[in-house]
Amino acid sequence: MSTSDGIPTQALETLLLALADDELMLGHRNAEWTGYAPLIEEDIAFSNIAQDELGHSLAWFTLYQQLSNKKPDSLAFEREWSDYTCCRFVTYPKGDFAYTVVRQYLFDEAEQVRLRAFSLSPYEPIRDVSAKILREEAYHLMHSQGLIERLGDATEESHRRMQAALNDAFPQALGMFEALEGEDELISSGIFGGNAKLRDEWLGRVQPVLENATLLIPGAPADFGGRKRNHVEYLQQLVDDLQSVYKIAPGAKW
């Protein structure tokens, strides 16, 4: 299915939902640090990042709404857990601060490559939203990369924790680049160059930074599944939490 201007609508919807779901789950996870971060200043920083990610999710859902006529709140708060198409990576528990930092950094770099690709897309709405989000992402990357550089080799404990976090997070992060349904159409219509290409660009960015922080990239295979709605159970718990109040009176004003 495609519109007259050559934009493959259905594949585009798939893409927008995946982007929105990724940001929703990561924003939810980051907000679990509000009140619990290692120092007050980091508490404030992570709360900002959580708000930004949720804001980005809202922006993608709003764009999706223009195609589907479904409201962002219903999309985020009314779907079955098995209907989301976020990658598994963003659904895992927040872990220790090392895991949170490593996940955030790997995600922020992925945002850089995918948003830059979309900001060249022929589809104007996705181009505009990407450019806006990129402006906020620059700061996220500065923050998370700064923590990677500082915590990677600061003390024996920080190195051990950061390496353990990377061992878990890296294969999961590769799952961000799992091919989407209809991705070939997106590529042929020039929306972006495809996830395999994004992954290679991403690798080119993260490898030197991680090496510089004395962290070794593990060889484990990518943790795919999320884009095909094949999730780990952590997502079920997350979605139960996310929707628990909303579902008391669905459709009511809250």
Partner: peptide, 10 residues
């Protein structure tokens, strides 16, 4: 550098 980031957030 970190102080600048924290100052921005706060």
């Amino acid at each position: 550098q970190t102080a600048l980031q924290y100052a921005r957030d706060q």
